[in-house]
Simulated assay, not measured.
Amino acid sequence: MAPLSLTLGYVPGATPAKWARIWAERHPDVRLELSAVAAADAAAAVRAGTVEVALLRLPAETAGLAVIPLYEETTVAVVPKDHVFNAVDEITAADLDGEPVLRPLDDVVSWPDAPGNPIDHRPETTQDAIELVAAGLGALIVPQSLARLHHRKDLTYRPIVDAPTCPVVLAFPEGPQPELVEEFVGVVRGRKPGSSRGQAQPAPKRTAREKTLAKQAARAAAGKVARKPGRAARGRR
């Protein structure tokens, strides 16, 4: 008989280590397999069963999925180390006015009317955009975790205090769940050890916040909104 396992997908920059550690402590007999997935493919991977649960960023096409908000990432601007932004601890959207800004095709920051002057060339990936930032072509607006993931000694980043944050959620298929998925949802939600082990649990009800995020994701999936200069609400640091 094959050993039990659960596959957790995660997008670049997401940090599954905390939940993987708790899972290993509580369920040493069930292997948690971590699977890196591209941001654009994460929701589809859950629907297809390639992964059973996933850490993904909103907005995403979440039709047929239940989502649990986990945390919201600070949005930052990545610039060369000798950039004027290096003289301050944080910046505002207005500070990016007139700045050339790179927008990769895999951009994950949902910021309609984002500040800066988008350059005509759109690099294919965030990694490609980082290379262009280092070459002095412009700034890059990303979640802080991606700035850390692609860290280079010749680059720095600064939080944009009035930028929208980047929500990270746990996603899994709607409806009744296999026991292992229920167990993992329990871990994420802070359920105490043994409180649901071996018990059939109904699919978790969505909170008002979860419903709002799902609606936002559905609207975003219906059509991508162009990003042009402007402002957004202050994000949590």
Rank of each mutant, 00 (worst) to 15 (best):
P178D: 02
R197H: 13
L155E: 10
A135G: 08
D82F: 02
A135D: 12
G235Q: 12
P123A: 10
H151S: 11
I141H: 03
E52A: 10
W23P: 06
T212E: 12
P143I: 01
A2Q: 09
A66K: 09
L140V: 07
D128W: 05
K224N: 09
A24V: 07
P3L: 13
K18P: 02
L105H: 09
T207A: 03
A233P: 08
R237L: 14
N117V: 13
D97C: 00
L96P: 00
A218V: 05
L34C: 08
R122T: 14
I119D: 00
G136M: 01
A208N: 05
R191M: 08
E174W: 00
L8V: 05
L6V: 04
F172D: 06
E72D: 14
R148K: 10
S145I: 06
G230E: 13
R122Y: 01
Q199H: 13
L56H: 06
T15H: 11
E174S: 13
D97T: 09
V67Y: 04
G194T: 03
Q127S: 12
A163P: 00
P143H: 02
L140I: 08
I22F: 07
A163Q: 02
D128M: 12
D29G: 13
A163E: 06
A54V: 00
L32K: 01
A43I: 05
T15I: 11
A87F: 12
A114S: 13
E61A: 14
K228C: 03
V67A: 05
E73Q: 15
S35A: 15
A139R: 13
R47Q: 10
H27G: 02
S5F: 11
A36V: 12
L149M: 15
V187L: 12
D89S: 14
F85G: 08
L34A: 08
R191G: 12
S195G: 04
T207Q: 05
A40R: 15
L34N: 04
L180Q: 10
E179Y: 09
A233R: 15
E124R: 10
A214Y: 09
A171N: 01
A232Y: 12
V109G: 00
A24G: 14
R189D: 13
G194I: 08
V225G: 06
I22W: 10
A2N: 07
Q177D: 04
P80F: 01
V37I: 14
A38E: 14
E61G: 11
Y71K: 12
R21H: 11
A200H: 13
L132H: 03
A129C: 00
V79I: 04
R122M: 08
V84T: 08
A171D: 03
V168R: 02
T207W: 06
L96R: 11
A48E: 15
S5Y: 11
K211A: 14
A221I: 03
D29R: 09
R21P: 00
L6F: 00
E179M: 08
P69N: 06
G230A: 12
G116S: 04
L58F: 04
R47C: 07
D154I: 10
A87C: 03
A20L: 05
E99L: 10
V168C: 08
P173Q: 14
S5W: 04
L6I: 08
W19C: 03
A233V: 10
E182G: 13
R189G: 13
Q127F: 08
